[in-house]
Amino acid sequence: MRRSTTATLALLVVTAIWGSTFFIIKDAVNLIDPIDFLAVRFAVGAAIPAAIFWRRLRRLTATQWQIGLALGGLYGLAQIVQTVGLQTTAASVSGFITGTYVVLTPIIMWIAFRARLNARTWAAVGLALVGLAVLSLTGIGGGGVGEALTLVGATLYAVHIVLLDRWSRSMDTMSLAIVQLIGVALTAGFLGLPGGYHVPADPGVWGAIAYTAVVAGIVTMLLQTWAQRHITPTRVALLMTFEPVFASAFAVGFGGEAVTLRLIAGGALILLATLLGIPGGQAGPADDVPLIPAPEGADTPPPPPPVINGDRQEGDSL
């Protein structure tokens, strides 16, 4: 089997794992406070790679630590908002709304840095908005709080991607990924302090913590790092659009959610917007092309720094 084919299959496995986390986390946060869940999950997810790669971390400067922790803190806030929203949002819907960060990223670039947007990007934004309305609105002027929080989380992910592109170019990507994980753990840990941490002995909760920290965190990070070395950024971006599709499939197949016309129509519109937002053409691995459309995007000039998104670690890093 050609290496590029193997890499493509590996990245599909990664997106499937990411998609599976939505219904798993939703079940877990019915039994545990979302912030407590994230604090323990990212403490585990940060401690393991930090223990393995501690020599790399020792070589970082104070400024690099500040950058990594700041990015991790922002990502941690996005995780908290998204996970709280997931308590009252169907996992399938959450997957599609979270995926809108792909089209929100160029909007953030436009607002913050006056980046030029073409007609294709604006069309993608319009489609995404219609898809969000179909998924979220429950009547004229209505809408769910959980869906709104999920959209806020997606916006924070987009801001994180933009800042990652601006701040991380001179930093070792493996170390940056680990420091960001530490930043997420510290953020969730700090916000969880007031009420103390309460982790039930339920094996399902601990299974969700282990799965999201190790399989959806460390394992996918390693798989994606290897895969992105052997396929183009454009193909990577296209494969990543399957995450919300997998999220819905797992939610319906294992989470007991129903397939509704609203889910099909709204999800299809958002998926189409995501595909439209990805720039066409062929890009070589060494090209200075963002990983995702101005993109999931601003994610990265070479080498692409990791973005820990949704339940993913994105980037050519570990």
Rank of each mutant, 00 (worst) to 15 (best):
L9Y: 07
A10D: 02
L11N: 06
L11G: 03
I17V: 15
A28Y: 05
D33V: 04
P34D: 08
L38P: 05
A51N: 13
A51G: 15
I52E: 11
L57Q: 00
L57V: 03
T63G: 14
Q66C: 12
Q66I: 12
I67D: 02
G68R: 08
L74Y: 03
L77H: 04
L86T: 02
L86Q: 01
L86Y: 02
T88R: 02
V93G: 03
S94D: 09
T98E: 00
T98F: 11
G99S: 06
L104F: 06
M109N: 08
M109I: 04
I111W: 02
A112F: 15
F113S: 12
R116M: 10
R116F: 07
R116D: 11
R116Y: 10
N118I: 00
G126Q: 09
G126V: 11
L127D: 07
L127N: 05
L129P: 01
L132K: 04
A133K: 13
S136P: 09
G141E: 07
G142K: 15
G143P: 01
G143F: 04
G144Q: 14
V145F: 12
V145S: 12
G146N: 02
E147W: 09
A148D: 05
L151T: 10
V152K: 01
A158P: 05
L164M: 06
L164E: 01
D165Q: 14
W167D: 03
S168I: 01
M171S: 08
T173Y: 05
A177D: 03
G183K: 00
V184P: 04
L186M: 10
P194I: 08
P203L: 07
G204K: 04
G204R: 05
W206D: 09
G207E: 13
I209V: 15
T212F: 01
V215I: 14
A216T: 10
V219S: 13
R229P: 11
P233N: 08
V236M: 13
T241Y: 00
V245C: 08
A249N: 07
F250Y: 13
A251G: 12
G255K: 06
G255S: 12
G256Q: 06
G256E: 08
V259L: 12
V259M: 08
L261S: 14
R262G: 01
R262P: 03
L263G: 04
I264T: 14
A268D: 07
L269K: 01
L271Q: 10
L272K: 00
L272Q: 03
T274M: 15
L275H: 10
G277C: 09
I278M: 09
I278W: 07
I278V: 13
G280L: 03
Q282I: 12
Q282T: 15
A283I: 00
L291S: 02
E296T: 05
A298I: 11
A298R: 13
P302T: 13
P303W: 09
P306G: 04
N309K: 08
R312E: 09
Q313E: 14
S317V: 11
